[in-house]
Amino acid sequence: MDWGQILSNSASFIIAPATIAYALAAVGLSVQFGYAGLLNMGIAGFMALGAYGYAISSITFGLPWYLCIVVAIAASVVYALILGIPTLRLRGDYLAIVTIAGAEVLRLLFLTSSFDQYTGSADGLTGYQGSFRDSNPFPRGSYGFGPWTMNENQAWVTVIGLVLLAIAVTIVFLLMRSPWGRVLKGIREDEDAVRALGKNVFAFKMQALVLGGIFGALGGVIYALPSSVNPGSYVTSLTFFVYTALLLGGAATIFGPVLGSVVFWVLQTFLGNVLPALAGIGILPVSSSQASTLRFILVGVALMLIVIFRPQGILGNKKELTFVK
């Protein structure tokens, strides 16, 4: 068992694109769920729109990478409006059902062979990085050090991902200190009370849904940028994993979603390496594929335990339990 390799692999996920992608999506979810109390159970749908929006714009329409990102954002805005208009006036659990159903509809539409020439159906899409890599300012070579050594393409993805994440966190930081954020938190507590004070609750909820959706789509872009888009990634489990990361860090905190994503991915990678290794040398009496399944069982158990015993997350204030009643 190579502990050095295992620890290095785990540490590399502190700033891996997947971690940044989860962090972006979790920041989006913190706006929607943590601050506004909106039960978006379909963040995977927003991420899928981001990933496919980017990839299809690049492959089918040949757009440059920054316009692909704009298309991804535009798609998520339109989608948020479509979901929000019918449901944001209704009770919270309807939004949950509609967002989760909407995410599935999107996934099935991307998966079907009917639109194979655009979506690649079950195979997903690859080979859309051209424009992005062409614009890479890093010359060919190796960057970083230790576990965080990457080639010029990985470095470029990581830099863009971190920039987007920094922008997202800054926006949330500014908004949540503003009167806008105050209204949003008020809506989470009791939307009727806020309505009685003359605030257009629907508009605020819609803005939160759209903003969170944009961050989710950006997460999808970063998730897809390093290699490929695979429809199997955007299942409901992805939504649940992002929720786990969010709740781990603290749903109504600025840096909680980021910290939660880092912890989630580092632990996932660590377990994903350690458990099969333990099985390999006979310490765990299971096969190696069973050993790698174990970590997902642990995610589920962890999610339950967090919600039951520390619903405010790592960074949350104990008094400030952040759950919608």
Partner: peptide, 15 residues
């Protein structure tokens, strides 16, 4: 309908 997880001052400012 006091907004429980907002402070008293935040409640007021919301008005």
């Amino acid at each position: 309908k006091a907004l429980g997880l907002l402070t008293v001052l935040e409640n007021m400012k919301l008005g």
